[in-house]
Design a protein around this nucleic acid. Structure first.
Lengths: 254, 254
DNA sequence: TGGCGCCAAATTGTATACAATTTACGATAA
DNA sequence: TTATCGTAAATTGTATACAATTTGGCGCCA
């Protein structure tokens, strides 16, 4: 090989490349739950050698998408509906704690600028009469940013890290429900409710209302859970969710 | 090399060996916070080659003991008192949730046998008039087991995993405070209080009192936090805590 | 026909060689 | 003396060769 690889971080380019590619293969269903993941297959599909492949597999195992096999190597992890609920619950607890801590710090008006802008941009989308895939995509990005900013306002590296770890599970991400909803009928309604909660949390932060900030943030995660559960009863919406392939449906025949 | 390595799991023996050795080097202070960790130094100290060393470093970074350096490689991570508090808080939230979930399942008498035995064994230690280092060591082991069993009773792999990850930080472990207390005067008192909480949680689980189980479990973590904070104001007790070397004291001169 | 054992292919874990970058140090000039 | 540049050493990232184990299949025997 010995390329110069001048794009991005040239330091561990092969490892990053492999990690991104394999993650995508898992989320796209190119590898399905329970499958062994032979390194040589990844070598020929990604074009990088075994060493960075192995590093990428270790990282993906830590993310939770793979699990070590008893006879060596890794297999794609499978999840059931209970796992999805638990992951969202954990995220709710952690985000709730982050919101409380952020409110307790009584953030200044300036500190909340980014969050306010985020809410404003989402408002603009939600208020439209018609919301197409383009707008859903924008909303997903803004929603991710909102949640990331919220957690960051707690100023707790430990908390931030804990959230990042649970959100590494794609269906635990705050945006998972958005894509799930996109295929359902009352999508716009859910966006309205979600956005109201975003606004309420922001208001609580500005007022230093830590208990309210926490409880709304927790309730916000329940909304995501309910929508994912709704999606999980049907095949089509679930497949729209990132990593939905990894979730075994209750209804699926054996 | 090419040893047969018939002890333990022969599969990834070198990687495990390196991981254990390097972790011990960090916790013993042989490597101090902020230090770069050159791979070749570890090669000559551990006797294994760079490949398993690199795998071990990746794992230790995921544990949180190392952090990637901008110029490649890893450095030993440094923590401050706020990080310690936050980590214990997160553990408290997760263990609280686990206790609540466990109680909601209304565990049968048989399911609680191990936990009861654990509490009984700890009672025997606490009731002694004199508690020496031997007993402290036993108590640490039993305490770890108690917390592990408690989390397991929630029957939630996601929750179990989240707890394991936060507890990987040695000072966030439920036993960290025990070793911290061992050097202080009111050690026995703290053991008594801690044990009363263990008993109360068990009682709440048996009665299916989920709210009580959660609140006591959370309060239990506050006890640990208070004791670690007490230890953190003095040099000697903090050094008794596993990984205490990684914690920068507020009082330390620059 | 079905089960058991042995051999070959596949796959993982480990070691090491090579390339590229970062770091350290010393010489030189202002 | 101090700052800067260039070169050499150190260190990391990557590729590949080798060893050992696991897996799959084929033949043999009951």
């Amino acid at each position: 090989m010995t390329r110069l690889m001048r794009n991005g971080d040239p330091r561990a380019a092969q490892t990053v490349k492999a990690q991104l590619r394999v993650r995508q293969m898992i989320l796209d269903g190119e590898l399905s739950a329970g499958d062994r993941v032979p390194e040589l297959m990844l070598v020929e599909r990604t074009g990088v050698s075994r060493t960075p492949i192995r590093a990428a597999l270790l990282r993906l195992a830590e993310e939770g998408l793979l699990e070590p096999s008893s006879s060596g190597g890794f297999v794609v992890r499978a999840f059931d509906e209970a796992d999805v609920c638990d992951a969202i619950d954990v995220r709710g607890m952690l985000e709730g704690a982050a919101a409380r801590r952020a409110a307790q710090r009584r953030p200044s008006h300036a500190e909340l600028t980014d969050l306010r802008d985020c809410v404003g941009a989402m408002d603009a989308i939600v208020k439209r009469r018609r919301v197409g895939v383009e707008q859903f995509s924008d909303f997903v990005r803004l929603n991710e940013r909102y949640h990331s900013l919220l957690v960051g306002l707690a100023h707790s590296p430990v908390l931030t890290r804990a959230v990042e770890r649970i959100v590494a599970l794609p269906f635990a991400s705050p945006s998972a429900f958005v894509m799930a909803q996109a295929a359902l009928v009352d999508a716009h309604q859910t966006l309205i409710i979600s956005q109201e909660q975003h606004r309420a949390i922001l208001e609580a932060l500005a007022a230093g209302a830590s208990a309210r900030a926490e409880s709304v943030a927790r309730e916000h995660s329940h909304l995501a859970k309910r929508n994912l559960q709704k999606a999980a009863t049907r095949e089509a919406p679930l497949r729209k969710v990132a990593g939905g392939n990894l979730i075994r449906l209750r209804l699926a025949a054996v």
